[in-house]
Simulated scan of single mutants.
Amino acid sequence: MTENNTNSSGDETPERVVGTPADEKPVVTGAAVSEEGHAGPYPASETHFNTEEGQRRGEKVASVWFILAFLGGMGFLVSYFVFTPGDIADPQLGQYSNALLGGTLTLALFGIGAGMTVWARKVMPHYEVSSPYDELPSSDKEKGSFGDFFMQGADESGFTKRPLMRRTLILAMVPLGLAPIVLLRDTGPLPGDKLKQTPWENGRRMYVEGTHRHVRAEDLENDPYGMISALPAVDDDHYPHGISLNDAAKSVILLIKMPAEDWKSSMEEDIEVEGEVASRLNWTHNGIIAYSKICTHVGCPAALYERTTHRILCPCHQSTFDASDAAKVVFGPAHRPLPQLPIGVDDEGYLIARGDFTEPPGPTFWDYAKD
């Protein structure tokens, strides 16, 4: 276990093996295997339960798992690029995309885990070292021998001795290493000025989200604390009113009805929409006000409304906005109010937009500065 050496005073002292106590002899358990080609700090007969044949068989099994992991990782990358964002939005293709992405990534991770398990159980050494707590600082001699000890450990683990297993493990890790890089495709490009214009325009009707029905002012008149989620009706001949998924994501609004006495003084502030300046109350209709439903924090739908306090809550990170106070932030990580949509009614009593949002909707970190 240890090798005697003569120190400067001429006394013979045992050389301490890194990872073992200085004064205690380590307890080592194992089964007999071939010593050929073994260079670890302990004899192979004391470190391996498996025979040389068993280790080779374990190497092959682990390599098979690593190859399956590589195929799974490559399948994940291929699936990611085969399906476009438009395909993912499709109900049927989206299911296939999710199944392939999830299945191939599961195979890749499971294959690596299974291969490492076989490696540890069938190839790596099995010995136990037990000792009382020792002094933490190491001597200069022990520090200098760490490199040799590390290489001995690598030899025992089979990483240097088993090239098939080593190469297939590296091969399996390559696709997983590339996965985070290709996923960066989903982080851009920045929207630029795309959010400065939405389908809302003067005279545009709106419909209740998830239905074919246009919104009338009387739909909220009967409830002094009502709330409706709505979208612009771009084309009445096509469901849902001809609006695309991207347009719906940035133009969805909350229509909120509240008593006139609940409005706060900030609602009398002047705002400008399409060159026209008026107070915020002028952009409401009979106590009905419209705000963007998209939270200005990271873009989650701020879809919860507390009637008694007129608070709009985003369930993702608890950003809270006061609907009676120009949707100003009263709690949470959001840094700016929800944009307001000027509204009115047409000759048939349907609610319509009087222009676009007072400022671009969406997360604050996007570039929404006005020209």
Rank of each mutant, 00 (worst) to 15 (best):
residue 157 S to H: 01
residue 136 L to Q: 10
residue 124 M to G: 04
residue 149 F to A: 15
residue 134 D to Y: 02
residue 125 P to R: 07
residue 113 G to K: 02
residue 145 S to F: 00
residue 161 K to C: 12
residue 140 D to E: 14
residue 147 G to V: 09
residue 163 P to W: 15
residue 116 M to D: 02
residue 154 A to N: 10
residue 140 D to R: 11
residue 159 F to K: 13
residue 112 I to R: 04
residue 113 G to Y: 08
residue 123 V to L: 05
residue 167 R to W: 15
residue 137 P to D: 12
residue 129 V to R: 11
residue 161 K to E: 10
residue 148 D to C: 09
residue 138 S to W: 00
residue 117 T to E: 01
residue 152 Q to K: 14
residue 161 K to F: 00
residue 142 E to P: 09
residue 158 G to E: 08
residue 166 R to L: 11
residue 159 F to V: 15
residue 146 F to N: 13
residue 126 H to M: 06
residue 140 D to K: 13
residue 165 M to F: 01
residue 159 F to Q: 10
residue 133 Y to W: 04
residue 122 K to D: 12
residue 116 M to R: 05
residue 167 R to C: 03
residue 159 F to A: 15
residue 131 S to N: 04
residue 158 G to A: 14
residue 146 F to S: 15
residue 169 L to I: 06
residue 129 V to E: 06
residue 157 S to T: 08
residue 139 S to M: 04
residue 161 K to H: 03
residue 162 R to D: 08
residue 157 S to R: 02
residue 153 G to F: 01
residue 155 D to F: 00
residue 125 P to G: 05
residue 147 G to Q: 06
residue 114 A to K: 10
residue 161 K to R: 15
residue 153 G to I: 07
residue 151 M to G: 05
residue 162 R to Q: 13
residue 129 V to H: 06
residue 144 G to P: 11
residue 131 S to C: 04
residue 126 H to G: 01
residue 150 F to T: 12
residue 164 L to K: 12
residue 156 E to H: 00
residue 126 H to T: 03
residue 136 L to T: 15
residue 170 I to G: 01
residue 129 V to C: 05
residue 156 E to Y: 00
residue 158 G to D: 12
residue 155 D to R: 03
residue 155 D to Y: 00
residue 118 V to N: 05
residue 134 D to R: 14
residue 151 M to D: 07
residue 133 Y to S: 07
residue 124 M to K: 12
residue 122 K to H: 11
residue 165 M to T: 13
residue 134 D to I: 05
residue 154 A to L: 14
residue 115 G to H: 02
residue 118 V to D: 05
residue 127 Y to K: 06
residue 158 G to H: 01
residue 127 Y to I: 02
residue 121 R to V: 02
residue 145 S to L: 07
residue 127 Y to C: 02
residue 135 E to M: 08
residue 155 D to N: 14
residue 161 K to T: 14
residue 114 A to R: 11
residue 145 S to M: 10
residue 165 M to D: 08
residue 131 S to Y: 15
residue 121 R to Y: 09
residue 113 G to V: 03
residue 163 P to K: 14
residue 164 L to A: 06
residue 118 V to M: 03
residue 163 P to Y: 15
residue 164 L to N: 05
residue 152 Q to H: 01
residue 154 A to E: 09
residue 154 A to P: 06
residue 130 S to V: 08
residue 142 E to D: 14
residue 120 A to F: 08
residue 133 Y to C: 03
residue 132 P to N: 05
residue 147 G to F: 00
residue 129 V to F: 08
residue 147 G to N: 06
residue 119 W to C: 10
residue 149 F to K: 13
residue 154 A to G: 13
residue 170 I to V: 09
residue 122 K to Y: 07
residue 120 A to W: 08
residue 128 E to C: 03
residue 128 E to W: 14
residue 119 W to H: 10
residue 156 E to R: 09
residue 125 P to H: 03
residue 169 L to A: 06
residue 162 R to V: 05
residue 123 V to S: 13
residue 129 V to N: 08
residue 165 M to P: 10
residue 164 L to D: 05
residue 167 R to E: 09
residue 169 L to N: 04
residue 123 V to F: 00
residue 142 E to G: 09
residue 146 F to K: 13
residue 142 E to H: 01
residue 151 M to E: 11
residue 169 L to P: 03
residue 163 P to I: 12
residue 158 G to R: 04
residue 166 R to M: 11
residue 143 K to I: 07
residue 138 S to M: 13
residue 129 V to K: 10
residue 136 L to D: 12
